[in-house]
Write a protein that binds this DNA or RNA. Structure first.
Length: 613
RNA sequence: GCCCCUGUAGCUCAACGGACAGAGCAACUGCCUUCUAAGCAGGAGGUUCCGAGUUCGAAUCUCGGCAGGGGCGCCA
């Protein structure tokens, strides 16, 4: 926002160094740690260090300070910069307060929902996430991939990438067939009504069927025989599925649809709109042709019929360390594997969807799988392989241990949501008794989901999360509701102002910002105002950082800091009550700008910004 | 045996190689006849797992340990 001033100053610094024969290192600008004012800062340690390396006998920190002081003199006065100081080797340039405040606030209000949007990058990025297995119910672990992926998609899109959202449900495999078998044999036609009830019911069948098919200790010969008979039936069913048997396929499609209905309902709840659905079953056939190509090109080795088809990745890359190992890409019986299908899928992403960057939001246990996949793509000759990225996230466990669908030990997303809404409603009836039942319900969903979403997104990608209900659904402190509350409080001021101005002027403008008068911020700003404006101005950088690092957590931290600055401001600086008309006008604009940026940040986190709570 | 991730306040987590390592929770002290107290203000809390190295400067980079988690040719 102060590019012009920065350029002028950079030119003066270069001029000074040229005059004095100083080997100026690259100029890096950062913000000044909060000091009640704001500005930008650079340091001369690197420059002094290179002097030292050239043979001058100097103490680097002292010399850096000396250079900073001399440059300060050289720069003199610059428009828009109120004063300059040289401290501890740093050169700090302070912006003139009212000018800075006005620029920031005006820009936010002019850009609105687009404030912080990056310039188009002419690169297409596909984010693959929300890939639960079908025939199961959606649990809290699935929520992590979904929320991380959706937030990341929103961030990179807003940062300027052409973005495609993709989901890749695992709709086939022995686990799916197990459910199909048990349903067909024991439960056909007994399914409950209700999308979620039915989805959860499938999960129960899975747990039961798995127990039936697992060898038990001390099992009797009859039990063993029955178990083996069941297992044979299950495998026969898989064979029939593979052969395209109509009965099995119909049964599979019908039950798959039940899962997808549940999934769609949950995605809808999370405001997630997937652009492209890839099903594992769809890439099964094409993947086999790819294996032939890789064999022909000498990348893969065919050990059939004794062994599978493999790629000796480490060997292909040269005599390095044992890192990528050997990957199996086709079973000896010719059936495809997870990796086979991911290769086929990648090819489709590159060729059909023209994807430049491909992000996979999948848990960390699949790290080796993706490293192998990306290396094979590279060997295969896809330059896009370099921009494939496995966003590996730590998995969510329970205090009593890992979740296990097979054992039926899972925390279902729907159950957490129901509990969240119950808890918010309990708080709401106490805090906002005047709210209508319908509105209260809607707000409860926004706040409950906001709490859960924030608790997941505020943790960095690669960390594990131990899921505890009380923690995930906390409404105090470093939480989603804290940020939502800042938005509500800002809105509350603006709404009150609007009511006032409607009374006074008889205006009927629906958009409150249209009633705001311009403001010069030409008064002595308080530290709270300064800090709030400072945070607002950082939003575009936070967007770019979160996008470049593929880390929604960066945005989560930013949103909290911004809300925190707003709450402090709110408490310390009267707006409507301010006696001074100029200050009142300026602060109203600042509140409107803060509300806007909080909403923009929450949107990138896939969290709703309620008007009341 | 090999590969990846993690180790920071009592707990959960932050911190482009840069200024004094910061938040929340828990515990403690104040603040609601005021624009919403889901809030604000305050103090207290640290050998950044250990040891070397690189650097003017290391929680951050390199190497070596220790501890926890995950993974390693026909599961996904």
């Amino acid at each position: 926002m102060f590019e012009k001033e920065q350029q002028i100053i950079e030119a003066k610094i270069r001029e000074f160094c040229a005059q004095n024969n100083l080997p100026l290192a690259e100029l890096k600008w950062t913000s000044i740690p909060f000091s009640g004012e704001w500005g930008m800062s650079t340091s001369f340690f690197a420059t002094a260090a290179s002097e030292a390396r050239a043979g001058k006998k100097i103490q680097v920190p002292q010399r850096a300070q000396e250079i900073a002081e001399q440059i300060k003199v050289q720069i003199g006065r610059v428009d828009g910069i109120s004063h300059i100081e040289a401290v501890k080797g740093y050169l700090n340039l302070y912006f003139s307060a009212s000018e800075y405040a006005r620029r920031v606030v005006d820009e936010v209000l002019a850009s609105g929902a687009d404030f912080g949007r990056g310039a188009a990058k002419n690169e297409r990025i596909m984010v693959e996430y929300a890939q639960p297995n079908t025939h199961h119910s959606f649990h809290i672990g699935h929520a992590r991939t979904t929320l991380l992926g959706e937030s990341l998609a929103r961030i990179v899109q807003f940062a300027g990438f052409d973005t495609i959202r993709a989901s890749y449900p695992g709709d086939i495999g022995l686990g799916v067939i197990t459910i199909l078998w048990a349903y067909d044999k024991f439960y056909k036609g007994k399914e409950p009504q209700g999308i979620h009830e039915r989805g959860q019911w499938l999960l129960k069948i899975y747990a039961e069927a798995t127990a039936m098919l697992e060898p038990k200790e001390n099992e009797t010969p009859e039990e063993k025989a029955r178990r083996e008979a069941y297992d044979a039936e299950r495998r026969e069913m898989y064979r029939k599925w593979d052969a395209g048997d109509k009965y099995v396929r119909d049964l599979w499609l019908k039950t798959r649809e039940w899962s997808l209905e549940e999934l769609r309902d949950i995605l809808n709840m999370m405001d997630v709109k997937i652009d492209v659905w890839f099903f594992e079953s769809d890439v099964d056939e094409p993947s086999k042709a790819i294996v032939d190509e890789l064999i022909q090109r000498g990348i893969a080795e065919d050990e059939r019929p004794q062994g599978p088809v493999i790629v000796k990745i480490d060997e292909k890359l040269g005599p390095t360390k044992e890192k990528y190992r050997t990957a199996v890409i086709l079973r000896s019986d010719g059936t495809s594997l997870y990796l086979t299908k991911d290769l086929a899928l990648a090819k489709e992403k590159f060729e059909k969807y023209k994807v430049d960057r491909s992000i996979y939001v999948v848990d960390t246990r699949q790290s080796l799988h993706f490293q192998q996949a990306f290396k094979i793509l590279e060997l295969w000759g896809f330059p896009q392989a370099a921009k494939c990225y496995h966003l590996s996230y730590g998995f969510i466990t329970l205090p009593e241990g890992a979740m296990s669908a097979r054992r039926g030990r899972v925390v279902l997303f729907k159950d957490v949501m129901d509990e969240a809404i119950r808890r918010v409603l309990a708080v709401e009836s106490e805090k906002s008794p005047e709210m209508s039942a319908a509105e209260r319900r809607k707000v409860a969903e926004q706040i409950g989901l906001g709490a859960l979403t924030y608790s997941i997104l505020s943790v960095d990608n690669n960390r594990d999360i131990v899921f505890e209900m009380d923690e995930a659904l906390s409404f105090d402190g470093h939480t989603g509701p804290y940020i939502q509350n800042a938005h509500v409080r800002a809105n509350s001021i603006l709404r009150k102002f609007q009511v006032e101005s409607l009374k006074v002027e008889g205006s009927s403008k629906p958009d409150v910002t249209l009633n705001l008068k311009p403001a010069a911020f030409n008064y002595e700003l308080t530290p709270h105002e300064i800090e709030l404006i400072e945070h607002i101005s950082r939003f575009p950088d936070a967007v770019q950082q979160a996008a470049n690092e593929y880390r929604p957590m960066v945005m989560a931290s930013y949103a909290y800091d911004l809300a925190n600055a707003f709450h402090s401001f709110y408490h310390a600086a009267p707006v409507l009550q301010s006696g001074n008309e100029e200050i009142r006008t300026a602060r109203l604009r600042l509140v409107a700008a803060a509300k806007q940026v909080i909403a923009n940040a929450l949107r990138l986190l896939d969290i709703q910004a309620p008007e009341v709570m």
